[in-house]
Design a protein around this nucleic acid. Structure first.
Lengths: 295, 295
DNA sequence: ATTGACTGATACCTTTTCGGCATGACTTAC
DNA sequence: GTAAGTCATGCCGAAAAGGTATCAGTCAAT
């Protein structure tokens, strides 16, 4: 045999009023069923909780101890629905978000500040992944949201353009081009050793640069997938590299950044990316909160 | 509308099995009422907790959050009766105990060690009081148990002899009597200035000494109620005093203790004292634990 | 594509539980 | 001694809960 929350509410009321009649009135019921509630509670607990003297009601020591537990139970029980509702509405919860390393450095902080201010109860878990890994993780439901580069399969994913930036040429600061007072054109790079993006692992940048700047692939001296690596190779004097403007924010010494003449001023896109069929209510709130944010 | 502990047990079972049929079997019921329990719980909570797909059952984020609260509630609810039973049986609880200061120093520690070993869940609160105060506090239910000196009103109190000790004469170490190689007799004190017990505040010692050692009251130079005070006055050379043997344990410098020839070898009694009509179950266990302890 | 197995929801009925009223048993106060 | 107050008990009707049968939807195998 076990007891019910109603019986605990009865006990609390009687313990506070020390009078069955008044306690019953407070619970909007009559005294007899309240007396029976307490009797059943005592039977279920296996100890006398109240001393009834037909003239006064007192808590036994066991009653005192059990009352404290009853109050703990009831306070959790009363607060739990509101908690579940906040989670259900998405104002509280967990969003696991992936981002592409170096290229996101500049905007990730601002994005997190925005979310913290608007959704203080939503916890963000951050994962560093390249676009390909993000897509796999979104499909496998290991993350809820990505900051990634196109293209995406519109069958499976929704996305929103979050940020555009220019494509720059990273050169060693002692390089002759570093003093140039105009934008770099393909002809300037006719004999330069190139540090280039991997066609497989950094497909977006590969396709972008190829479409923006016609170049001879045979001058590629390194094939790399991370912006960070490119910067270090440039710093080491291995060649020149095409990087997004946000690479400036990474403090790699001895690297200069030059504008490039491209058909589109800011061709590098960063998108918010999420699965069409997500069951995480907090994701919807996060997307709402970022609706009008363009970083 | 509110929910019940049974519904929480239903939720936990379904969340663990992720299958209504198996969960119902575990709860020794059939599947339909369990489905209705969960529906009512969701209605009461105001959020969907489970995603049912006629093929698989999943927890929603709100369900996860609420499940954790449900487990907290149930674990308290399941542990609470055992707690109440321990309190009810007296194996756990609080006993407020008074003791007379100096004269109890020697035995109080041993008594507390004994109780700690036998009743580790019973907390003892200690109060320092003279016998008169103890009787008042027991009557007013401010304490549960006293360590006091007779006499007691047997109508209101029960008591048990806990300790006997000798009556000693405290003298300054430079006093001529300090070198005596036999017990002191009344004649030795014919001209000594006496530090004596207050007839009102230390009635027990007053009556005891008067009955054991016939003396001329006109040689009393100080009237005192606490043994501690007596020792300091002896130390200051103000006279000699009758003190219980346990006063030796109080480290007051320059005081020597001499045996006294008394009709009874150990006339000073210390009793356990408690109200006949106590409602504290822990008191009964403490008395049981001390049943055969004679300190 | 059809069929059978599986699973949660629903309809309906029976049993249990719960609350309310009337009243009893007992104590306290005047 | 009587009256007022308080908790417990008996009884009844209403509400709630559980069980059986069945429905509706999905998946897998033929």
């Amino acid at each position: 045999m076990t007891y019910t929350l109603e019986q605990l509410r009865g006990l609390v009321a009687v313990a506070e009023e020390l009078h069955f009649g008044r306690a019953a009135a407070r619970l909007r019921m009559t005294q007899p069923p309240l007396s029976r509630q307490i009797q059943k509670l005592e039977a279920a607990v296996g100890a006398q909780l109240l001393e009834r003297d037909t003239r006064r009601v007192t808590l036994t020591p066991a009653g005192h101890a059990f009352l404290a537990e009853a109050r703990r139970i009831l306070s959790i029980a009363e607060a739990a629905p509101a908690l579940a509702q906040r989670v259900s509405s998405g104002f509280r919860g967990l969003v696991r978000m992936a981002f592409t390393s170096a290229s996101t450095f500049g905007i990730l902080g601002r994005l997190l500040n925005e979310l913290e201010a608007r959704l203080p109860e939503v916890h963000l878990e951050l994962y560093e992944m390249v676009t390909r890994e993000q897509i796999d993780a979104l499909t496998g439901e290991d993350i809820d949201l990505g900051l990634a580069r196109p293209p995406f399969d519109p069958e499976l994913f929704e996305s929103r353009l979050l940020h555009r930036e220019a494509l720059l040429l990273a050169v060693h600061e002692d390089h002759p081009l570093a003093g140039l007072d105009r934008a770099v054109v393909p002809a300037d790079l006719a004999t330069e050793p190139l540090i280039f993006h991997s066609q497989r692992k950094a497909r977006y940048f590969y396709d972008l640069v190829v479409s923006m700047v016609p170049l001879a692939q045979e001058r590629v001296v390194h094939t790399v997938s991370q912006v960070m690596t490119m910067l270090w190779l440039v710093s080491a004097g291995r060649g020149v590299a095409f990087v997004p403007a946000s690479a400036r924010l990474v403090g790699v010494p001895g690297v200069a950044f030059l504008p490039i003449a491209t058909p589109i001023a800011e061709p590098v896109e960063l998108h918010l990316l999420w699965p069409r069929r997500s069951h995480n209510p907090a994701l919807a709130r996060v997307l709402d909160a970022l609706e009008h944010v363009m970083l």
